[in-house]
Write a protein that binds this DNA or RNA. Sequence first.
DNA 1: TCTGTTATTGATCACTTGATCAATTAATTC
DNA 2: GAATTAATTGATCAAGTGATCAATAACAGA
Lengths: 212, 212
Amino acid sequence: MSTDPSASRRKAPIERAAEIARRSQEIALDEGLSALTLRAVASRVGVTPALVSHYQPSMDALVAQTFGAIVAAEISEVAEELAPCETSVAALKTLIDSLLGPERSAVTAVWLDAWSLGRRHPALAVEVGAQMDAWQAFLAELLKTGCVRGEFRAIDPDAVAWQLLAIIDGLNAHAVVRYGHAQRLRGLVRTVAEHELGLPPGALDSGDNPEP
Amino acid sequence: MSTDPSASRRKAPIERAAEIARRSQEIALDEGLSALTLRAVASRVGVTPALVSHYQPSMDALVAQTFGAIVAAEISEVAEELAPCETSVAALKTLIDSLLGPERSAVTAVWLDAWSLGRRHPALAVEVGAQMDAWQAFLAELLKTGCVRGEFRAIDPDAVAWQLLAIIDGLNAHAVVRYGHAQRLRGLVRTVAEHELGLPPGALDSGDNPEP
DNA sequence: TCTGTTATTGATCACTTGATCAATTAATTC
DNA sequence: GAATTAATTGATCAAGTGATCAATAACAGA
């Protein structure tokens, strides 16, 4: 009974740091970025607030890092979903469905917190800017590939990417704040995307009807 | 020199309450909703924190009330701008220009704060919902009038109003967080509006070119 | 001029936040 | 097994938050 390897053993710095990062993301997704306090993290990890301070230079840094990690994970998840898609149209369709799905409300709430908190926390503001750029780059890449393949026609794919992201953010914000409108508004993004990318109407509909 | 009417005279409750409300709106627009603290309000009004508490049941209530007042003023301002417009097309054009103008960034920042804070403050959440409904009702009214006049063609003006507001909110959020994209993206709302309302392309452009 | 009402104050409480530091103790190394 | 390193703790600080309450003082009406 004396060789229990999990009982009150101190962890290697890398493990502990990873644990703190993981738990921080949990808290942010569960209760919002502003619930990410020194004591909340310490409590969930099961250690003392002083230890969290020991691993993190400041809470501002931890909040920024946590936000960045959550969004980076979001992008990775979507990228995985898009991998099996053979056409750019299918990929865009999947991306829109995924980003507007109800299971993303937690991440959207984190985005709202970040936009608000970022105005007072420079480190977070920098991270917000970086992650918005990352999302735009990811979507623009998709659009450009579609243009090369001849599936899309867009003069300025970068601008279209920003437009689509802005619409998606607006719709998601509304959906998070006031439920009930998400379903109804989902078609809007497809309509805009079709218009901006020279696609025939209905090309991005949910069913499998690419074009007649 | 003894009859200075403005020196250290206590004010009537109605005046004082109005003063607190006005100063609170200033703070919220200047530094954000989260800067609206008991002491910040007291300091700007020039009184003791206890007096603010005396006039307000709780800070949550004051924050919610201040947000509501700011948005109500926003709607009133836009409504005034729209009054001289003779056609619904002109009114919609003016509304879009006004809502996407750079001078609204302070109000947009307040919206972002409210969306974020509203998740933890029920009273604010209620006010956010009410003001979103108010904006939607205002815009839907405009669209319905346009339909009656034969200027617009929309099956569901209420849904279109929600769509346009979502896009505007998304664009404004991006513009507040990251400057530089506002100008480029402004045309998007017009394109969507024209598409959804059966207008000819260019009908909502800035210049005076209704239709040939 | 006196009296009653109440706007206003000063002091203070309870709570939460981020942060620091000496002391401790587990793990590693020799 | 002893010595060294450092992960971890407990205690504590200063700052900021909302809120309360007795005491004060300005005003209104008699």
